[in-house]
Amino acid sequence: MHRWAGVLLALLMNGFLVGQMWVVRGAALSPGPAEAVVVREDEVHRRPVKAGERTVLEVSTTGLLEVVVYERTGDARELEEFRAGRVPRTAKVFSQVRELSYPLSSVTDTEFYVRVRHLRPGETRLRYVPGLVDEAMARLRKGENLVRNRGVVVVEGGRLTMPVYQLVPGTVVRVEVQSGRGVVGLLKTRDYLDVRDGRATVAGRCTPQACVEASSGRAVLEVAVGDYDDRYLVAEGQGLVFTYRVVATPEVLNHISSCT
């Protein structure tokens, strides 16, 4: 899903915001990060997360991955699907990533399930960094920025598209191209659909504010998000390696809602 995590509230489900309402009593300080473990393809990793916790999932590989993150929704069929190696419709899929950092939190006690698939073989490590929603909120209140999720993406050829999660007004998406040649854009739904359905090319929907072109390596794109429109990363090129970060600024505090 994607704003399928449904902005505000759902924001919560997606990351730290929602969970903020459910403080874990007695858990004043989060423990240190657990050791990274080596994971095999298609193993299912289950991670219970208590209301108020904000556990950051970190995955890295020497190869190339598709990572699927699924939060239990109460629909038993979805969990079966996930266990059977399929992708339930509410799961989040991160494709062609070398590194991924993604927060797991929820408004109620819940369970997340993680599975990786190697698009190129390599050694893959996974760890969970525990934390609390309140800690994240406190940092924003102090005026600090906070990385909500982050990935290192590789496009060896052709086009990659993926939804960007956890966007609300006040977030900034920063894309840094490290190497390769091509274009990376952050398109709104309408533009993304035009590109996907062949009504327009990526270049045809790119404005300098929303796209960056790399001819030989380094280039940076920074997009300040001021609305609730969904956005999709669209990248085309050869040997393109880039990092994207979704960064919450204190401005997001204006838009946090419980939507109850």
Binding site: G6, A10, T108, S258
Partner: peptide, 13 residues
């Protein structure tokens, strides 16, 4: 539903 569960989340189940 655009969301991954019925809203508001407290009533999802």
């Amino acid at each position: 539903d655009s969301n991954d569960r019925p809203q508001p989340p407290l009533l999802a189940d």
